[in-house]
Amino acid sequence: MGCGIWVLHYMVMQAHHHNHVINYNIQITLASLLIAIVGCTLGFVCFLFKKLRRKHYLLPALIFSATAASMHYLGLTAIINAGDWYVSNTNITLSLIVIFTTSLMMLRLTHLMLVMTGKNDSYANFYRLGATLTLCVGVAIMHFLGSCEINMGSMAVSSAASSQDAYIENSLAITIIVLVALVFMLAIFIWFINFKEHLSNELLKKELIMKNLQLKQMTQHDSLTKLPNRLYLQAHLNTQFNSQTEPLFIMFVDLDGFKRVNDVWGHAVGDELLVKISRSLKSVVGNEGFVARIGGDEFIIVISQKDKDTVIQLAQQLLATISDRYELSATTVDFLSASIGISVYPEHGKDVATLLKKADVAMYYIKDKGKNNVTFYDEVEMTLPC
């Protein structure tokens, strides 16, 4: 960065109005380059340490502006054929205010760029470009303010002096060209390294997101039916309890006769049947409720509804669907039924464990009464296990 500011300084000086080519003392010129490199390095070191930069970046901004001003006015003294020149105190003050203000703005934009890097690359690039343009504009304005009153005097010089001036001029031109080339190549190299790192980070980030989604799917969903499992169900119910205004009906569905399928045709056929039943349950419930498998042939259906009769109608529809005929790879199953026990939030409890236990008790109650039916938990007729 120091080399870049130094190159910008001498390009601005060459572009400034004068009636002949100007030459520089090479030693003083190189001293100004050293000041630019050291000052910018110190400024960024100060900026990177939170305790040094503080909240408003005053110290690093002061270092940057002092570096730019020192480089500029030292560069003026390096001009060999400047003649008598004078810069008013007003212009000096204005130039210092401009470079200090733009340094503050540049550091703020740089900080925002660092914050946004990895979060939103579009914004990060926008802040990076803004910081670069702000500093360039500030340096250019400072140089014009600090040199607008200089009169480049004419000098009668001998051929030897002309030769020496030409040598100095050529040396400075070569130095500037080499530095510009080095800065340009360094910028390309840094961009290439950052691009590779960014691309690698993006690929890694996408891979991690996919792995996390897969892990979440595995831990919160049943691997066979892809329905939410008990863990997901508990989190879902706790979330609903926090904002629930209507009664919440917890249906505990247990299949009647499923054990016979596993015993006669094997677990592979039983798994095939469970997949078909889970799809049927989701199709009947639709967007009105939530379906989960908590293990074996047990399912939980959660419905938010004001009217109990509507819930009973849905439960009867579920019983009719489960009792359907299933064409499986090894056999046809047409003897299934289901027993459904229902608990109600907040009537029967305000926590997941209590509601599931009471729905389970109601399910076993109706199973003992003949199966293939539905009932609500009753505090009088049904007792919870100890």
Rank of each mutant, 00 (worst) to 15 (best):
Ser70His: 02
Asp121Val: 07
Glu202Asp: 15
Phe195Asp: 15
Gly75Gln: 03
Ile300Ala: 05
Thr93Cys: 11
Asn89Arg: 05
Leu114Gln: 14
Ser343Tyr: 08
Leu107Cys: 05
Thr175Trp: 06
Leu248Lys: 00
Gly295Asn: 05
His198Val: 01
Val137Arg: 07
Val361Met: 09
Thr41Tyr: 12
Asp121Thr: 07
Leu355Ala: 10
Ala166Glu: 14
Ile28His: 00
Gly130Tyr: 03
Gln317Phe: 08
Asp334Trp: 10
Met11Val: 01
Ala31Trp: 02
Ser70Trp: 02
Val115Phe: 13
Leu107Met: 12
Tyr365Gln: 15
Leu224Met: 06
His20Trp: 10
His17Met: 11
Arg279Val: 03
Ile80Ala: 01
Leu8Ile: 02
Gln214Thr: 02
Ile176Thr: 04
Ala160Lys: 12
Phe192Gln: 12
Asn151Met: 06
Phe249Arg: 07
Ile150Gly: 11
Ala292Met: 06
Lys50Asn: 13
Trp6Val: 00
Asp368Lys: 10
Tyr10Glu: 05
Phe192Pro: 04
Leu231Ala: 13
Ala140Trp: 06
Gln164Tyr: 11
Met1Leu: 03
Val285Met: 13
Gly2Asp: 02
Ala31Phe: 03
Asp351Ala: 08
Ala131Val: 01
Lys358Leu: 08
Thr93Tyr: 07
Lys350Met: 05
Thr332Tyr: 09
Ile322Gly: 09
Met152Trp: 06
Asn23Ile: 02
His18Gly: 13
Met71Lys: 00
Val380Cys: 13
Leu145Asn: 10
His18Ala: 13
His143Thr: 02
Glu298Phe: 03
Ile188Phe: 06
Val352Trp: 13
Lys211Thr: 01
Thr310Ala: 15
Gln240Trp: 10
Val157Ile: 10
Val98Met: 07
Gly118Tyr: 10
Ser122Trp: 06
Gly118Pro: 12
Gln234Arg: 11
Ile174Ala: 13
Tyr127Arg: 00
Ser122Val: 11
Met218Arg: 00
Val291Tyr: 10
Ile301Lys: 08
His56Asn: 13
Ala78Glu: 02
Asn151Leu: 09
Asp378Phe: 00
Ile79Asp: 00
Asn89Gln: 12
Lys55Leu: 14
Phe249Gly: 09
Ala156Tyr: 08
Ser103Glu: 04
Asp263Met: 04
Lys350Val: 00
Ile80Leu: 04
Lys357Gln: 15
Thr225Ala: 12
Val253Ala: 05
Leu203Ser: 15
Phe335Asp: 15
Ile174His: 05
Leu204Ile: 03
Asn25Phe: 04
Gly341Thr: 04
Asp378Ser: 09
Ala235His: 13
Asn125Gly: 12
Asn201Trp: 11
Phe241His: 12
Asp351Leu: 03
Ser65Glu: 04
Ser278Ile: 02
Ser32Ile: 00
Gly289Cys: 08
Leu319Asp: 13
Phe195Lys: 11
Thr383Gly: 12
Lys282Phe: 07
Leu135His: 04
Ile322Ala: 09
Val38Asn: 05
Tyr377His: 08
Phe299Val: 01
Gln214Asn: 10
Leu384Lys: 04
Ser200His: 15
Leu96Glu: 08
Met106His: 06
Gly153Gln: 08
Tyr364Glu: 11
Asn125Pro: 10
Asp368Arg: 11
Ser122Gly: 08
Ala15Ser: 14
Lys55Trp: 12
Ile250His: 14
Ala66His: 06
